[in-house]
Design a protein around this nucleic acid. Sequence first.
RNA 1: GGCGGCAUAGCCAAGCGGCUAAGGCAACGGAUUGCAAAUCCGUCAUUCGUGGGUUCAAAUCCCACUGCCGCCUCCA
Length: 470
Amino acid sequence: MAIRLFNSYSHALEEFHPVEPGKVRMYNCGPTVYNYAHIGNFRSFLLADLLRRFLAFSGLEVKQVMNITDVGHLTEDHLEAGQDKVLVEAMRTGKGPAEVARFYEAAFIEDARRLRLLEPFARPRATDFVPRMIEMIAALLAKGYAYVVDGEVYYDVSRFPAYGRLSGNTLASLEENARVAFNEKKRRQHDFALWKRDDKHLMQWDAPWGRGFPGWHIECSAMSTHYLGDTLDLHTGGEDNIFPHHECEIAQSEAFTGKPFCRCWLHARYLLVDGRKMSKSLGNFHTVRDILEKGHAPEALRLSLLATHYRQNMNFTLAGLEESRARVASWQRVVDNLESAPAGPATPRVAAAAERSLAAFAQALADDLNISAALAAVDDFRRETNSAGPTRSDAPLVKDTMRRFDEVLALLSWDEKGLLDAEVEDLLRQRREARQARDFQRADAIRDRLKAAGILLEDTPAGLRWKRAR
RNA sequence: GGCGGCAUAGCCAAGCGGCUAAGGCAACGGAUUGCAAAUCCGUCAUUCGUGGGUUCAAAUCCCACUGCCGCCUCCA
């Protein structure tokens, strides 16, 4: 089935075909590790994860690279502002910015695992790629795409005619609408830095042009081409990365390699919280761990952040989080209830639903990751299956179908319930007896006791069901 | 000021020129049930921000207006 994606570079829906058939090279702009990642960050990372999982689901091999930006935009001024506790603590105890970065990098990876993002092929750190960045800058200088001024290096955008094609910010329009004070060192207002100096900067490296640090954009060019070659198939990021970051990445990379940098760009639109832009001052700022620490299930958060199409502003609310939780729970029950399915022949209706829903699911995602339609396909399967009443013979198919959905969605728990210990087993037996004797008071008391122990009971027409509280 | 995006039921959200406007949450009615939970069946937008236009036909295309959001040098 043809997969269509909206390519921000061409501003159009296109059929996706990797350079090398069957193998996809994908680069995702990753986190800046000077703070905990917030839910907006993860919306963009989850787009990358959804895309990767769906491509794999479709039979493609995906080589995914997500960078860690640890090259400091940290200066002494930041330290003086002292907003970040870990940072302040690090400086107080004599630890450097590198240790701060490691701390938040570890926190990010933990968050990513809790939200079930697949491990990328590589998660390179910008600081490990400074030599390659210097190499690339030297090459750009040699080719005449860049110039040195006073120990700094700038990219000469006038040498790259396609500048502005991604963002729509052509040089002409940028010049007309200049809003930022002109940096005297640059030849043109919109030339951007490949190498900078700033004595206040805490991370510095030696380069042929002087001691300093790399410009923001060059790191992604260095890391992506190192792992994935001159031409990437896919590149993702938040919409705010379109300009200047990705525009500049294209200019640098193509000037360096002489080849097209990336075939297809995907950008996740911003997330709002309670209808407004998330910001600390509005008090609607949520990190991933804040939400999880408040007791919300990671699957609920994952679905919430996934459930709105990536090119649509999503509005995050606690009500929406609860809605996602309920939806995941209803799918989980389809799987869990199979254990107590009655014996009987296979149900044609279930088989038909499995085939139809799986096809609808794949077709929806192939249409520029139409997640709403894909989720509706899962709901359709849930309703059909429950309505038909699956038998023991249906169980393998139902389970396989749900598993297939979950390869992409990654929301369900597949661990076996495990054996109950003898004490719980005994309580269940006692309750059964109490109910038979119509001693409902005692039956309810036992149910409450088991609930407190994390075992939830359901008396269904098919008999007693139990599950562990999650 | 320049560039770009979005407005669909109480809420979330599909649909992208033509079958009765998907699906979820909530709500309500019913079945089942000792109660609870879960599940099923049914109800829930003659209408798609507002006003025009194009068309045999528009939520879908065009124009205007209103509202919201993003980018315009280091923020996903």
